[in-house]
Measured scan of single mutants.
Amino acid sequence: ATNIVGKVKWYNSTKNFGFIEQDNGGKDVFVHKSAVDAAGLHSLEEGQDVIFDLEEKQGKAYAVNLRIK
């Protein structure tokens, strides 16, 4: 899925991951530091509006192509 809109539920910059809540009511999506770095960001803030693509690997969904809304 592409261009999914959501809000950062939480992001832990020490542990380098967090979760994004989808605006469409879907399951929360894992986001890793690598996606944050690829977006040219240092971190994510709770409540921040983002747009992302959804990829699945080994049955787990995660956010890629992250951008600030």
Rank of each mutant, 00 (worst) to 15 (best):
T2P: 15
T2L: 14
T2E: 13
T2M: 09
T2W: 09
N3V: 04
N3I: 03
I4Y: 06
I4W: 06
I4M: 08
I4K: 09
I4A: 09
V5A: 11
V5Y: 14
V5N: 08
V5P: 09
G6W: 01
K7D: 01
V8H: 00
V8E: 00
K9H: 04
W10T: 04
W10E: 02
W10L: 05
W10F: 15
Y11S: 01
N12T: 07
N12D: 08
N12W: 14
S13V: 09
T14S: 07
K15I: 14
K15H: 07
N16I: 02
N16Q: 08
N16T: 12
N16F: 11
F17C: 03
F17N: 02
G18N: 01
G18T: 01
G18A: 02
F19V: 06
F19T: 02
I20Y: 00
I20F: 06
E21H: 15
E21K: 15
N24W: 15
N24M: 07
N24L: 07
N24P: 11
G25H: 12
G25Y: 08
G26P: 08
G26F: 07
G26A: 12
K27G: 09
K27Q: 08
K27N: 07
K27C: 04
D28H: 15
D28L: 07
D28P: 07
V29H: 06
V29D: 01
V31T: 04
V31N: 00
V31L: 11
H32Y: 07
K33H: 10
K33L: 05
K33A: 13
K33I: 05
K33T: 05
K33Y: 10
A35M: 10
V36R: 02
V36M: 10
D37I: 15
A38T: 13
A39E: 03
L41F: 15
H42S: 15
L44I: 06
L44Y: 02
E46V: 11
E46S: 12
G47M: 06
G47F: 06
G47E: 06
G47Q: 10
Q48A: 07
Q48L: 09
Q48W: 12
D49Q: 14
D49R: 10
D49S: 08
D49F: 10
I51C: 04
I51L: 13
F52Y: 07
F52D: 00
F52M: 04
F52Q: 00
F52P: 00
D53G: 04
D53A: 04
D53C: 03
D53T: 05
D53M: 04
L54Y: 15
L54T: 09
L54K: 15
L54F: 09
E55G: 10
E55N: 13
K57V: 11
K57H: 10
G59Y: 08
G59K: 13
K60N: 10
A61D: 12
Y62K: 07
A63Y: 00
A63E: 00
V64D: 05
V64L: 08
N65Y: 08
N65M: 07
N65A: 07
N65V: 04
N65S: 06
L66D: 00
R67P: 00
I68P: 09
I68F: 06
I68K: 12
I68T: 09
K69F: 06
K69N: 11
K69I: 04
